[in-house]
Amino acid sequence: MRNLWLLLQRNAFFLAFIALLAVSLSVLFRHNGAARSTWFSRTGSVHSKVEQQRHQWSNYLRLAEQNTSLAEENAELRARLLSMEMETGWEEDTLRGWTVHSGMLVKGPDGAPLSLSLATPGQDKAIEAGMGVLAGGAAFGTVEEVGEAHSRILTLLHGAASWSCRIRRGGPVVSLGWDGVDFERLQLVDVPRHIQAQRGDSIFTSGYDLRFPPDILMGTVLESRRTSGADFISISVKPAVDFLSVRHLEFIQHRSDSERVALAAPPEP
């Protein structure tokens, strides 16, 4: 205490100087608009930084608490999951306006350029021609023809079909096809030279063909090759669906499909 008093005594002039400067500045800030706004903006930015830092530390210190809460929630969800039975029927997805029906692949593509696939169900479960077909959440093909209990599927592995897609989400719209050679390689056809595609880029449905909703995964870019002098580049795509092992399918149809098809059809002369 005595040392502190001695220290204060030794620096009394400096402390008085600072105190009087502070008094002067407070009067200045109180009555000078420019000085006051500068003061508040500077102190405001410092205050926000301090507050941000404090918030980060607070979040960090609460991690253990949040972790415990998540673990408890996880345990509860797992208990509920284990007590549930697997449902066999698919329910209508009313959120995005698409109806989903489950199905089973009976005959898959055999690697021939124009091979077709068969699946169940057919008309008995309201399957219609033109519906999109997914496998594991990725694009598989479309229903070409429907029988009483079976449907004929035109898959991505069909040499005569082309599919509207996008390179990356929101990227340019191009056509996806298969040259009938390697069933692990689809081709993006007629891609203009200015379009950039890197290995690993995802290919999504564009939604323009009315069979699939947009942003359904179709595959990933394997290779992009540019031939000198050509106006187009050739891009190989690895399909997202493993056509050799797929069994379960999902038939999807927009609830306003008939209206969309009718409006999209060219007018009759």
Partner: peptide, 17 residues
């Protein structure tokens, strides 16, 4: 002038020694 001369005077007074 509210504070301007106070600040300048204090500064000069502090620097006078």
């Amino acid at each position: 002038t509210y504070g301007q001369h106070m600040l300048a005077g204090t500064m000069l007074g502090g620097l006078m020694p």
